[in-house]
Amino acid sequence: MSADDFSEHVEVTRPGSRVVHAWRRPGGTRPVLAVHGLSSTSRLWTWLLAEDPDVDLIAADLSGRGASTPRSDASTLAGHVADQLAVLDALELEAVDVLGMSLGGFVAVQLAATAPERVRSLTLLDGGPPMVRRPTSREQLEAAFADRTARLGTDWPDLAGYVDFVVAHTAPLLDPADPHLATCLAHDLERGRDGGRVRLDGRALVDDAADVFLTDAAADALRRLAVPAQLLYAEWSVGAGSTPAYTDDEVAAVVAASEGPLRAELLPGHDHAGVVMSPSGAAASARALRRSLAATG
């Protein structure tokens, strides 16, 4: 099983004739809304679906990623929350468990704070709580994510070249021969496995990063969090030995400040991408999701 096996596809029209594309792979669990990261797409969940084929998973391409139209105005967490709620409405889903990775974790927390009646639980994968060490200007953000925006100016002749670039510049612990990685990254490209330009809006990427790092939106949403939440956080950020997004002490402080809703677990031996984009990381993420489903069952 993989994200290639999504059996349902919905197109949700948003203001300004913008369209959000979402997919569902029905399963035996309660419905789970999965929100991908900053430069990814709905196919991020390929590894998790392979690890736990019974999950009833709904995943959209965020605006400006994959098949979904970029916004004409600034991209924000609040804008993504509105889009996710529109997807739930289109599928006639009143309440869901929410799974979010990286930027998706921040969107998930904002969603739970904005519409708590629509969210049963949160499973956050290396994202969601505000980060202590973060860029302080848009220029720093543009430099920090230059590896992502560097993908955009090339008409990739084939998928293999694009995969090699992503592994070399963004995710050095991933296996370039992993077939799930090919499935995931093919959805980035205009022609899929035949290459093309990357379907990623660079302005939206930096806008979203700015809302996460340069505003208090993430901290404000976390303070309002009332639904059960689990955070699975990686030992490293990019590659073995790199400084993580969250240290143990930082996570302990966030958990203590939450006074109950948030629990956390370290995923050792993995970097940020590997929390989902590796068999072992996907297995740990699936276990965390299952705990969330069981705790609110």
Rank of each mutant, 00 (worst) to 15 (best):
S63G: 12
V81M: 03
L77F: 15
L88R: 07
D83V: 00
S63L: 08
G66F: 01
V87H: 07
L88G: 14
T76R: 09
A67E: 11
H80I: 00
R65A: 00
L85I: 07
P70L: 05
Q84Y: 06
Q84I: 00
D73T: 11
L77T: 10
S75Y: 11
I58A: 02
D61F: 03
T69Y: 13
S75C: 08
A67P: 02
A78N: 09
R71K: 12
V87W: 10
L62M: 13
S68F: 13
G79P: 10
D61E: 10
H80D: 15
D61A: 07
A67N: 09
G66Q: 00
S72D: 14
V81N: 10
A82L: 01
D73N: 11
A86E: 14
L62V: 09
L62R: 13
I58M: 04
A60Q: 13
V87C: 04
L77C: 08
L88Q: 09
A78F: 07
A74D: 15
D61C: 05
G64M: 02
G79I: 05
A67K: 04
S63R: 15
L88E: 11
L85N: 12
S75K: 02
A86P: 14
L77I: 13
S63E: 01
G64K: 04
S68A: 06
A60K: 05
L85D: 09
S68K: 14
H80R: 04
G79W: 07
R71L: 06
H80C: 06
P70F: 07
A82V: 01
D73G: 11
P70Q: 12
S72G: 03
V81P: 14
D73R: 13
L88V: 11
H80G: 00
D73A: 11
S68V: 04
T76A: 04
R65E: 01
A86S: 15
A67M: 06
R71I: 01
P70R: 14
S68Q: 04
T76S: 07
L85K: 15
L62T: 07
D73V: 08
L88C: 07
L77M: 10
